[in-house]
Design a protein around this nucleic acid. Structure first.
Lengths: 245, 245
DNA sequence: TTGCCATTAAGTGTTGACAGTTGTCGGTTC
DNA sequence: GAACCGACAACTGTCAACACTTAATGGCAA
C-alpha cells in the first residue's frame, strides 16, 4: 500500500514517507474516498499505512498549505470544503493565470506542441459525437494542461493544477454540462488559431474568456440547483461560516 | 522569543507551536537573518525556541510547500534560492494575477479605497522628493496590497503575497532603482484613474504592464551586473551544494 | 606531502509514549 | 421528559529516544 522500499519496519533511508503519504491523501481526495469536511484520523491513517503519526502530520501540514486540508486546534485536520464564493474566486484566478499562460505560450510554442493541441481538439470532437462525456472531460483537462506547459513557466506549471485541485473540493462535484461541450471545443479551436499566429494578446483574451465561460456555466448550474432543490436552507450549522456568494 | 502562552514546558493547549514557528522562520528569512541556501538546523532551532523538533519539522514542511524552503533527503531543509529564470517566471505570474486583481477591483472598489490609494500616491510623491527610497518601497508595497485587497478575492489576497515573498529569495536582493520611482508612480496614477472610471480592462492592462515594467528593470539590472561582474560564467551548475554559510 | 579509508561526531527520519483536550454516554436532578 | 454533570474513551499536540545517513576528522600508506 505504501512502503517506500517495500520494507516492513526497518528503513534503509532511501526516500521519505512524507511525499508518499501526501500523494496518497491527495489521491484519496481525488477519488472521493475522502470527501469534503471529513476529519483525518492521524492514528488510523498511520496504522493503515504501517507508519507512525509523525510523517502523517507533516504531510497533512503540507496539504494544509496548498489548500486541500484545514486544521483546527486540538481537533486535527479536515478535508477542506470550498464555498461557492471561493469556487468563484478560484475561477477568476484561473482565468487570469490561464490567460497569462496563453500569452507566454503564443510566443514560444513549438509546432509539435501545436500539433498536439490540434489532435486533442480532434479527439474531443469525436468524444462529442459519441457522446462520451468522461473522455471529453479527460481530453479537455489535458488540453488545458498542455497550454500551461507550453508557457515554459515552471512556477505556473506547478501552480495551475493546484488551483484546479482545490476547485474539486467544491461541495457538489462533477458539474459537467453535456450541452456545453461543443461550444467549449469551438473555443479551443479559436485558441489554437491564436496560438498558431503567435497572437499573445488574442490567445490570452480567449483563454481568459474560456475559463470565465466555465465560471458562467458553473453559476448557472448553481442557480438551477438552488431553484430545484427547494431552497437548501442554512444547512450545516457548524463549519463554513462562508457567506456563500 | 516564542512561548505560545508564556509557558515554559507544560502546555495548556491554547495554540499550536507550528504556526508560530512558521511565522518566526518567515520573519528570519524576511529580515535576511536566514539567507538563501543556508540549512535549517532543526535541533538547534528547536532548542533555541525551547521546543522539540516535531513542530519545527511541521513548520518547515509547510514552508516547503509555499516555496520558501526546499528539502533534501537526509540533509534536511534549506532556505530556497530563486534562480534568475524562476524570478522572471514569478514576474510573469504576478503580472497576470495583478491584472486580474485590477479587473476585479475596478468593478467593486469603494470610494474610501480609492481615497486610500490616492493618499498613498501622494505620499510616494513626497518620498520621491525627499528622496526616501525606503519609505517609497514600503508605500509601493502597500499600494499593491490595497489593489489586491480591493478585488475581494480572498484566495488572490492570500496567494499574491506568497509570490512576492518567494521573489525576495532571489540571490541578489534589494534591486531598487531610484531612477524608476517617478515613472513607477506615474503608472500608479494611471492605474488609479482606470479604477476610478471602473475601467476593468484598462486597469488590468495597466497593472499588468506595471509589473512587467518592473520585470524589465529587473532584467536590465541583471545585465548591468553581469557586465560589471566580469562574467560570472554559467553559474549555478545545479543548486549550490552550499557549504552552509 | 598527498590520497585513501576507518572512525566518529552531527543531524535527519521515524517511532512510541505521555499530557491535555474534545466529545460522548449514562446518570442525576428539576 | 429535558437539561445539567461527571466519568470515560478517543484523539491531538508535543516530547524524548533510537536508527540511520552524511560529512568531517585523523591515521596510515604511497
Amino acid at each position: 500500500m505504501l512502503r517506500p522500499a517495500a520494507n516492513p519496519a526497518r528503513t534503509p533511508r532511501t526516500a521519505s514517507f512524507v511525499p508518499l503519504i501526501q500523494r496518497e491523501i491527495e489521491r484519496m481526495i481525488g477519488t472521493g474516498e475522502l470527501t469534503g469536511g471529513t476529519r483525518i484520523n492521524e492514528s488510523t491513517l498511520a496504522l493503515r499505512l504501517g507508519i507512525s503519526r509523525g510523517p502523517v502530520r507533516e504531510a497533512c501540514r503540507a496539504l494544509e498549505q496548498i489548500g486541500l486540508l484545514r486544521s483546527e486546534l486540538n481537533r486535527g485536520f479536515f478535508v477542506r470544503e470550498v464555498s461557492t464564493k471561493e469556487a468563484l474566486d478560484l475561477y477568476d484566478i484561473r482565468a487570469g493565470l490561464f490567460g497569462t499562460a496563453g500569452r507566454l505560450s503564443a510566443a514560444i510554442i513549438t509546432t509539435v506542441q501545436l500539433r498536439g493541441l490540434e489532435e486533442l481538439i480532434g479527439a474531443m470532437d469525436a468524444a462529442i459525437e459519441a457522446p462520451d462525456i468522461a473522455t471529453f472531460y479527460t481530453l479537455n483537462n489535458e488540453f488545458h494542461r498542455q497550454v500551461v506547459v507550453a508557457s515554459d513557466n515552471d512556477k505556473l506549471i506547478e501552480l495551475y493544477p493546484l488551483l484546479e485541485a482545490e476547485l474539486h473540493l467544491f461541495r457538489r462535484r462533477g458539474l459537467v454540462l453535456p450541452g456545453s461541450m461543443r461550444t467549449s471545443n469551438d473555443e479551443h479551436k479559436a485558441i489554437l488559431d491564436a496560438l498558431r499566429q503567435s497572437d499573445g494578446t488574442g490567445a490570452a483574451r480567449l483563454l481568459e474568456r474560456h475559463i470565465l465561460a466555465g465560471k458562467a456555466r458553473f453559476l448557472r448550474t448553481l442557480e438551477d440547483d438552488s431553484a430545484t432543490e427547494a431552497r437548501p436552507g442554512p444547512l450545516d450549522p457548524r463549519q463554513s461560516r462562508s457567506k456563500d456568494r
